[in-house]
Amino acid sequence: MTAVAVKGKEMAVDEEGYLVNLADWNEDVANVMAAEDNLTLTESHWEVINFLRDYYAEYQIAPAIRVLTKAIGKKLGPEKGNSKYLYELFPYGPAKQACRYAGLPKPTGCI
Protein backbone atom coordinates (compact mmCIF):
# COMPACT_ATOMS: atom_id res chain seq x y z
CA MET A 1 0.00 0.00 0.00
CA THR A 2 1.28 3.41 -0.92
CA ALA A 3 0.08 6.85 0.00
CA VAL A 4 -0.31 10.34 -1.33
CA ALA A 5 0.93 13.16 0.91
CA VAL A 6 -1.42 16.12 1.12
CA LYS A 7 -0.43 19.03 3.35
CA GLY A 8 1.59 16.76 5.61
CA LYS A 9 -1.15 14.11 5.85
CA GLU A 10 -0.75 10.68 4.27
CA MET A 11 -3.76 9.29 2.41
CA ALA A 12 -3.66 5.59 1.56
CA VAL A 13 -3.98 4.71 -2.13
CA ASP A 14 -4.12 1.33 -3.87
CA GLU A 15 -1.54 -0.02 -6.34
CA GLU A 16 -3.10 1.99 -9.16
CA GLY A 17 -3.19 5.22 -7.18
CA TYR A 18 -6.89 5.28 -6.28
CA LEU A 19 -7.82 6.49 -2.79
CA VAL A 20 -8.55 3.61 -0.44
CA ASN A 21 -10.98 5.61 1.71
CA LEU A 22 -13.41 7.76 -0.22
CA ALA A 23 -13.85 9.91 2.88
CA ASP A 24 -10.18 11.01 2.71
CA TRP A 25 -10.89 13.11 -0.36
CA ASN A 26 -10.72 16.87 -0.57
CA GLU A 27 -9.81 19.28 -3.37
CA ASP A 28 -6.17 19.32 -2.29
CA VAL A 29 -5.99 15.56 -2.90
CA ALA A 30 -7.03 16.12 -6.51
CA ASN A 31 -4.52 18.95 -6.96
CA VAL A 32 -1.66 16.88 -5.51
CA MET A 33 -2.50 13.85 -7.66
CA ALA A 34 -2.69 16.03 -10.76
CA ALA A 35 0.60 17.74 -9.94
CA GLU A 36 2.24 14.30 -9.76
CA ASP A 37 1.05 13.79 -13.35
CA ASN A 38 2.41 17.26 -14.28
CA LEU A 39 -1.08 18.60 -14.72
CA THR A 40 -2.63 21.77 -13.35
CA LEU A 41 -6.35 21.46 -12.80
CA THR A 42 -8.46 24.13 -14.50
CA GLU A 43 -12.15 24.98 -14.29
CA SER A 44 -12.77 22.52 -17.12
CA HIS A 45 -11.12 19.70 -15.20
CA TRP A 46 -13.12 20.52 -12.09
CA GLU A 47 -16.33 20.47 -14.08
CA VAL A 48 -15.67 16.82 -14.94
CA ILE A 49 -14.35 15.88 -11.50
CA ASN A 50 -17.38 17.41 -9.80
CA PHE A 51 -19.67 15.71 -12.28
CA LEU A 52 -18.11 12.35 -11.41
CA ARG A 53 -18.46 12.95 -7.69
CA ASP A 54 -22.13 13.86 -8.13
CA TYR A 55 -22.68 10.78 -10.29
CA TYR A 56 -21.08 8.57 -7.66
CA ALA A 57 -23.14 10.12 -4.86
CA GLU A 58 -26.30 9.42 -6.85
CA TYR A 59 -25.59 5.92 -8.19
CA GLN A 60 -22.73 4.55 -6.03
CA ILE A 61 -20.72 3.82 -9.15
CA ALA A 62 -18.03 5.51 -11.20
CA PRO A 63 -19.36 5.58 -14.78
CA ALA A 64 -17.62 3.87 -17.68
CA ILE A 65 -16.16 6.24 -20.29
CA ARG A 66 -19.01 5.72 -22.76
CA VAL A 67 -21.56 6.54 -20.07
CA LEU A 68 -19.53 9.50 -18.84
CA THR A 69 -19.26 10.99 -22.33
CA LYS A 70 -22.97 10.68 -22.94
CA ALA A 71 -23.94 12.01 -19.52
CA ILE A 72 -21.52 14.97 -19.74
CA GLY A 73 -22.99 15.79 -23.14
CA LYS A 74 -26.47 15.78 -21.69
CA LYS A 75 -25.49 18.01 -18.78
CA LEU A 76 -22.76 20.31 -20.13
CA GLY A 77 -23.48 20.33 -23.86
CA PRO A 78 -22.28 18.38 -26.92
CA GLU A 79 -19.05 20.39 -27.25
CA LYS A 80 -17.96 18.77 -23.97
CA GLY A 81 -19.71 15.44 -24.31
CA ASN A 82 -17.21 13.87 -26.69
CA SER A 83 -14.12 11.81 -26.12
CA LYS A 84 -11.79 14.25 -27.91
CA TYR A 85 -12.58 17.03 -25.45
CA LEU A 86 -12.35 14.69 -22.44
CA TYR A 87 -9.10 13.07 -23.58
CA GLU A 88 -7.53 16.51 -24.01
CA LEU A 89 -8.37 17.26 -20.39
CA PHE A 90 -7.40 13.83 -19.08
CA PRO A 91 -4.87 12.24 -21.45
CA TYR A 92 -4.53 9.04 -19.39
CA GLY A 93 -8.17 8.22 -20.05
CA PRO A 94 -10.94 10.50 -18.82
CA ALA A 95 -12.87 8.00 -16.75
CA LYS A 96 -9.82 6.41 -15.14
CA GLN A 97 -7.78 9.53 -14.51
CA ALA A 98 -10.61 11.87 -13.54
CA CYS A 99 -12.07 9.25 -11.19
CA ARG A 100 -8.72 8.97 -9.48
CA TYR A 101 -8.54 12.73 -8.92
CA ALA A 102 -12.17 12.67 -7.78
CA GLY A 103 -11.29 10.15 -5.06
CA LEU A 104 -13.54 7.46 -6.56
CA PRO A 105 -12.78 3.82 -7.25
CA LYS A 106 -11.69 2.79 -10.74
CA PRO A 107 -14.77 2.80 -12.98
CA THR A 108 -16.63 -0.49 -13.31
CA GLY A 109 -16.40 -1.74 -16.85
CA CYS A 110 -13.37 0.36 -17.62
CA ILE A 111 -11.23 -1.07 -20.36
Binding site: E58, Y59, Q60, I61, P63, A64, A71, G109
Partner: peptide
Protein backbone atom coordinates in the same frame (compact mmCIF):
# COMPACT_ATOMS: atom_id res chain seq x y z
CA UNK B 1 -21.55 -3.28 3.41
CA UNK B 2 -21.91 -0.94 0.47
CA UNK B 3 -25.49 -0.13 -0.47
CA UNK B 4 -25.41 -0.93 -4.18
CA UNK B 5 -29.13 -0.51 -4.75
CA UNK B 6 -28.80 3.03 -6.23
CA UNK B 7 -26.71 1.51 -9.03
CA UNK B 8 -29.78 -0.20 -10.51
CA UNK B 9 -31.00 3.29 -11.37
CA UNK B 10 -27.83 3.85 -13.43
CA UNK B 11 -28.54 0.85 -15.68
CA UNK B 12 -30.49 3.11 -18.01
CA UNK B 13 -27.29 5.08 -18.70
CA UNK B 14 -25.67 1.79 -19.71
Amino acid sequence: QKNFSPTYRALEDY
